[in-house]
Design a protein around this nucleic acid. Structure first.
Length: 109
DNA sequence: GGGGTGACGCGTC
DNA sequence: CGACGCGCCACCC
């Protein structure tokens, strides 16, 4: 499976895939890393169709407030929270401390 | 070809 | 500090 970076979604997926374990990124962050700061909405849409949930940890992506996506609760948002905690990310009331867990490509990767 | 929607972000009231 | 509206881009009908 070749990744077509020419496709908008593929760029987003590639960025999300880069998110290391124990770190989280915001939609805006992913959009920015994908090369377009205005794709925040598109990022959400892209993760919504998430074709490869096994390779694309959409649960590591949170909104600007560090709040987990409420719509992610297709069976309980704690599903995402559980995955985050499994990564070593502490989630408080559905919120993560971005100051502490926000992904830093420059320093971590 | 046109219109509506959305797992967002930011400014303003 | 909370609620509301606008913008932005891609996808579906």
């Amino acid at each position: 499976m070749v990744i077509d970076l020419e496709n908008t979604f593929e760029k987003i997926y590639e960025v999300v895939r880069r998110i290391p374990r124990g770190a989280v990124a915001t939609y805006g962050q992913v959009a920015l890393l994908a090369g377009n700061p205005r794709w925040a909405r598109v990022v959400g849409y892209a993760l919504h169709v998430n074709p490869d949930p096994d390779g694309i940890p959409c649960y590591r992506v949170v909104n600007r407030d560090g709040r987990v996506s409420p719509a992610f609760a297709f069976g309980g948002e704690n599903r995402q929270i559980a995955l985050l905690e499994a990564d070593g990310v502490t989630v408080t009331d559905g919120c993560v401390d971005l100051k502490q867990y926000q992904w830093r490509p420059q320093l971590s990767d």
